[in-house]
Nucleic acid binder design. Sequence first.
DNA 1: AATTAGCACTCCGAGCTTTCGAGTGCTAAT
DNA 2: ATTAGCACTCGAAAGCTCGGAGTGCTAATT
Lengths: 347, 347
Amino acid sequence: MITLTERQRLILKAIVRDYTEGGNPVGSKSLVQELPVKVSSATIRNEMVRLEDLGLIVKTHLSSGRIPSIKGYRYYVDHILKPEKVDGRDLQVIQHSLGGEFHKIDEIVAQSADILSQLTSYTTFTLRPELKDSRLSGFRLVPLGNHQVMAILVTNNGDVENQTFTIPNDLTGDELEPVVRFIDDQLVGLPLQDVLQQLQREIPLKLAKYLQNPDGFLDIFGSVLSKAASERFFVGGKLNLFNYTAQQNPKTLQSLYSLLDQTDNLANVIGPPGQRIQVRIGNEITNDLLKDYSLITATYDVDRHGKGMIAILGPTAMPYSRMIGLMGAFQRELARKLLDYYRYFDE
Amino acid sequence: MITLTERQRLILKAIVRDYTEGGNPVGSKSLVQELPVKVSSATIRNEMVRLEDLGLIVKTHLSSGRIPSIKGYRYYVDHILKPEKVDGRDLQVIQHSLGGEFHKIDEIVAQSADILSQLTSYTTFTLRPELKDSRLSGFRLVPLGNHQVMAILVTNNGDVENQTFTIPNDLTGDELEPVVRFIDDQLVGLPLQDVLQQLQREIPLKLAKYLQNPDGFLDIFGSVLSKAASERFFVGGKLNLFNYTAQQNPKTLQSLYSLLDQTDNLANVIGPPGQRIQVRIGNEITNDLLKDYSLITATYDVDRHGKGMIAILGPTAMPYSRMIGLMGAFQRELARKLLDYYRYFDE
DNA sequence: AATTAGCACTCCGAGCTTTCGAGTGCTAAT
DNA sequence: ATTAGCACTCGAAAGCTCGGAGTGCTAATT
């Protein structure tokens, strides 16, 4: 456990702030003017030697100013930083953008990623409230004519998933009736996870009683079901990558872009829902591509409708204080909006 | 009209090829070895002076080798180039990727953009066969319970568009019946364009006979309808931008990315369906951001189901011959696949 | 014991110079 | 009409200088 004197903390704080704002290593002379205590540059230099011994700041070369190390950011975030009160205008932007009418959870969550990236100028991810606790509340097969049929799956949370299939022969209501009855009797009310499991074994057996050849139906049902039960990430502000990654080589940028396009990887990056707000800095992120970035994640809680996540990806030199304040506000607003949305389906 | 001697054409052709492959300005000495005719470097230099006077090649500085000008590429494409026979493996990739089973036109067309970008290492756009000639062949309102209703629109080409709406009160079959009857009687069979027009004036009036308060329904119907009637572009290989644009500054790259993300702009870039294969080079493209790139567009024809487009965006120094050959093959394969797909809905 | 002034030392980066090689245009000879 | 020969040009890479910002250390001061 590292303990710092008050003056050392002030110096570390000032170094973090200066470097984050200006992007240049910070020297002892410029600190003299900024510190609230009156000391000479030589004293600051002596203190900096101690901070460096503790591994909190480093030099870029033998006679350069100092920049915070990962450990330094860590200490700053854990022990110095106070979340900034969120700006009134920012709050207004959030409330206004979430204020409109939405017809899908996914729309709200996708929109959230965009707002957050706009407010931060960084890249953001959002994950909708987990689907694993959702229950199947309805399934429809709508014949569209022309050898097409649309399968629609509805959950108790109001999520709707659908897919159109082309089939060899048109279906009639009579053929569908036993299938629909089977679903209603046996599966409605079960968590999607359970249905997904049963799909492997029980369902084909049971369905055999109702249908001659259940394979076609199983494909359709399984496909919509797994679509409905899969996690979905939304990414906002991909273009912002260009802004905070300027000095890097283009290959790295390309890899990053590619990472952000494969949204199924993002689950590993963000990690499971956890404490309310979490900051991971540099190599604390379990992905080598992101070892020079920082990731702020937050879990939002929509009561019994599950938990979701929001995340901000940016440079390690990031205005953490503002970001964390913003995250807190967003967390609350999003949870509130979603609760409001879910009210429809609770009655 | 420019006329060149045979030797001049050979020189221009070699310059285009060398520069396209190597990326460096081409000098007289290296050409000596490559030309099929035996001449000295001095002779080539003399010829190059003439080609430069005609504006077909330029120097990057006073004593550098030559690179083709836009006019030079133009001449090459129009008068020298022969489309390369498409590689057997490439053809196999195309056929295999289009060979699978699809449930939507859009899936096929989106997949096409990906295949083409993979084969070319460039960025590609595809536009599905125009929807404007599609006719409305069905409309459904499916109550999902929980204050939700799904609107489904089907066209005679088998396109299905759907959207879920949250409504204040649950609908019953009885309430929907007159609306569905109205659509069937009055609108089914009409081109989507016509329906869209009527939506402004006639439909609200006529609907008043059937429904007390038609506004809610009009919103829903209009929303799905305009979704169904809108053009949609698919972009493939956005990441490839990083490869063929390396030397450019990152700001340009960012703008380009942004352009490709706003797919509604792409209609202007690609232009209307036209001749079968068209090459636009540098400033011939009506978009300043693309003035250092080339665009190859092709129109594919699916008989009475309309025409669509495919396009390749790459550097001006592009292996045109291979690209055009590939474009031709792709054009045919895609048209064939789509015809095959449409067969279902023709019966 | 903590702080500070003074100073020699380090290193980066911007700008300048040098050098090398590839390429050109021109002239005169073939 | 073609070619050999040659002086000339320019860019890119490598080497150089120099100023500025910053450091650590020592000795003096509080």
